[in-house]
Write a protein that binds this DNA or RNA. Structure first.
Lengths: 332, 332
DNA sequence: CTGAAAGCGCTAACAG
DNA sequence: CTGTTAGCGCTTTCAG
């Protein structure tokens, strides 16, 4: 009952041709029309499916692409992953997924595992820096970064949301509402976004209003709560990700700060619950899915010409969490 | 600069032993202490990493496990995936992820792809029914279902949340608050949960208060809105998933139904935003991560003894979206 | 305890 | 256009 799968040899023998011919026909090589048809027929009859195992060994590389992201539980990354999967599926390529927890060491381990598997194409939301990535690249992995780059990895193509424009828009919107004391609540691996914030704020920037949390929910909450408690003079905050935004909402509620009366909030990344929140959250939407899809496209195209990557637009979606700076925030 | 990776042969020659010996040493076989040490040293020096490609072909199976889920964008499934990844990582196994979109056909395609890759262990949140799964199982894939089973696949081990208890608890809670007209808003592939709802409701059940949506957000919203509009006499609703819950909140708001005054809501699955919502949502929490982890454990243990699967407890978390049935809902 | 040898299923020269 | 052949890197008998 448990028949072994048909191999290329079975097909060859049944069709009365050599294995090479079968291989050629199935990979679109040259063959006489009649031979081709015969092979195809036999292959279909035998329900032949070429084994990736044999091919992989022969070519010294498993097809397929690796996907490394910090946390698959975060809907933003989930959407990026979805984009990658969509693209890979349309190319018939398997995707091996690993989560790094924003830990460069774990990232390196996963890369090692992928290389062992023969994976030589990688889409990553990087955690490590240039130094940590150097060995990987030297090893010849075709890599495309998604969502963010890594310091000292300027030569790796990256598909990014236009953080510069996003941050600038947010800051302009907030200052336009009269805010001056604007805080930034950031996460790991977003040095660039933070830099742009400083730049956009210009003389208004106050380093004490800048806090960066580690990746976890707890850390984000602690950062937000600490910020709000220690700097009661802030009137607006820009949260650099949906986890940070969530933490900000929670912390504000806990400290009895009302949005948007006591504090305005803009969050990076539009998530479904931004609309369910009350007040609903004003956000900078990022095309997460597209980021993943485009990154996968790039990596599948291979180390072709394309030297640099892609910049995708962001969009300010105004909802209810921002207000003009009214009379100063009530003392605490 | 681009040195080829060391192969087992390189190690053997450098250490002055046969390849078989190297293989044995590295896979914990028998070897004299000195030989073992020499091989290990050389392997380390050469930074030798055994190629999974070779091994896979030899063993006619790629290690690694396949993971099939409806939608990686849904945080519930994301958490399940996280659990699977966590377990697989601790076992050093790669995970190939595919999303089915709750489409049996697509599911079948993905399974085909996995088999081509030599994957022979699968964790799945199934979309298809027994008939659709039969070929897969016959082909010898070690399969474990997570989160739900498939009709006619009773013999496949499954790791499930205790839906029966969950639904019962929810219904009891609601009836305890005086509710009689309780609606059920379900999604695809949850026949069992629905069955339990009918059972738990007993004589109170009204088929017109039962609606099942397809997998998408739009479909969920349409279902919720339709239900609320056509059945203004309902006083409580049980949403069979976070997407459904989200849709219910949105639809209620749109129709100007206030929670919990006009309608009580219990949602399956506790998600971070349930607490951000206002009112915060009363939910049946499910151990999504555990479900994934345990499923991966089972599939890694292989087709061992364990005939049936595992049932994990759910928990009713009371927050603010339910109220005692007061005076009848205001007419519309 | 160890080495030699036989493939796993496939592709890519290389001849015919 | 087609068949033969030589491996890809590894594990696993089978002798020694």
């Amino acid at each position: 009952m448990n028949m072994r799968r048909a191999t290329i040899r079975d097909v060859a023998e049944t069709a009365g041709v050599g294995v090479a011919t079968v291989s050629r026909v199935l990979s679109g090589g040259s063959a006489s029309p009649e031979t081709r048809e015969r092979v195809l027929t036999v292959a279909a009859q035998l329900d032949y499916r070429p084994s990736a195992l044999g091919r992989n060994l022969r070519q010294r590389r498993s097809g397929g692409i690796g996907l490394l992201l910090p946390d698959i539980t975060d809907t933003f990354y989930g959407r990026v992953a979805d984009g990658v999967l969509a693209c890979a599926r349309s190319a018939g390529e398997p995707v091996i997924v690993g989560t790094t927890g924003d830990d460069p060491e774990r990232e390196a381990e996963l890369i090692g595992m992928l290389m062992e598997q023969g994976v030589d194409r990688l889409v990553a939301i990087p955690s490590g820096d240039g130094e940590s990535w150097a060995p990987t690249l030297r090893a010849g992995l075709t890599t495309v970064f998604a969502h963010r780059t890594s310091a000292g990895c300027g030569d790796i193509p990256a598909v990014l949301a236009d953080d510069r424009a996003g941050v600038r828009t947010a800051v302009d919107y907030l200052t336009g509402l009269g805010h001056r004391r604007i805080a930034y609540l950031g996460g790991p691996g977003q040095a660039q976004r933070l830099a742009v914030f400083r730049e956009a704020m210009g003389p208004l920037v106050d380093e004490e209003l800048i806090v960066v949390a580690r990746g976890s929910r707890d850390s984000a909450y602690a950062a937000a709560a600490g910020l709000f408690q220690h700097r009661p003079d802030l009137t607006a905050v820009l949260a650099g990700g949906n986890l940070l935004g969530e933490a900000a909402v929670l912390a504000a509620r806990e400290l009895d700060l009302r949005l948007p009366r006591d504090m305005s909030l803009i969050m990076f990344d539009d998530v479904p619950w931004a609309e369910l929140c009350s007040p609903s959250l004003t956000v900078i939407a990022q095309p997460a899915q597209d980021i993943g899809y485009r990154a996968a496209e790039l990596v599948l195209r291979g180390g072709g010409r394309r030297p640099r990557g892609v910049l995708l637009p962001t969009e300010l979606i105004v909802r209810g969490s921002c207000a003009a700076r009214g009379t100063s925030r009530s003392p605490r």
